[in-house]
Design a protein around this nucleic acid. Structure first.
Length: 213
DNA sequence: TGAATGATTTACT
DNA sequence: GTAAATCATTCAA
């Protein structure tokens, strides 16, 4: 399958987030190549989205990449120890991005295992935003990197079933925390633990009425 | 200059 | 289930 080009990223952030599920993330470093299927992602849509770092139009050295051209990496550091990898989407000036929360390892398992300090058969290898950055060796050095380059990029893949739920870890965002802007592949073991009550989309015939979002 | 705070992970009870 | 780890970024002063 071909490498995804700029046009894929230059679309509404919710579309890119949804369509990123199933795509292949490829990462090349001097140590070797690793890749994995994206199985979980979230959309962040500033300036109105209170959950986004770009909320209120906040434009600083840290958030600058979100305001730039689509198809570039927005990488940030949280909790004093973890990196998070995002893909900038939409148009220049729109501070929108997709947080990649989990991938299913495809190649370079040994290298990932080495970087994570656990065996290759553990789902903990890449089942979280901080974990996958560690496994893929993504750090601040990759801030602003062009996904249409060769060091890190996505490969197209066949569409898969996608479920959605509220986003994780943004309880401070008020009503924005209730938006179902998290997308994931149902049943995939590499999806990080999410809300106790996931909301499913694109599935017919639900048996019981939902009680909560 | 200083205090508060995370788009989390891990270990432990 | 809870809590500690750990620091760049942000904002107030």
């Amino acid at each position: 399958m071909p490498k995804l080009d700029r046009a894929f990223y230059a679309r509404p952030v919710l579309s890119v987030a949804r369509d990123s599920i199933g795509k292949i993330l490829v990462r090349k470093t001097p140590a070797g190549v690793v890749s994995g299927r994206i199985v979980e992602a979230e959309a962040y849509r500033g300036p109105e989205d209170r959950g986004a770092h770009s909320f209120g139009g906040r434009r600083t050295a840290r958030t600058e990449a979100m305001f730039g051209a689509p198809g570039h990496a927005y990488v940030f550091f949280v909790y004093g120890m973890h990196w998070h990898f995002n893909i900038v989407t939409g148009a220049v000036g729109e501070p929108h991005a997709v947080l990649i929360r989990a991938v299913e390892p495809l190649s370079g398992l040994e290298l990932m295992s080495e970087r994570r300090g656990i065996s290759t058969d553990r789902v903990e290898l890449t089942n979280g935003p901080g974990k996958l950055c560690r496994a893929f060796a993504i750090t601040g050095d990759d801030y602003g990197l062009d996904l249409c380059s060769h060091r890190i990029y996505l490969l197209d893949a066949e569409p898969v079933r996608v479920a959605r739920s509220v986003r994780i870890g943004i309880d401070y965002a008020g009503s924005w925390a209730n938006r179902p802007w998290r997308f994931f592949e149902p049943q995939n073991p590499y999806v990080s633990r999410g809300p106790s009550r996931p909301v499913r989309a694109q599935r017919g015939g639900r048996k019981h009425a939902r009680k909560r979002l």
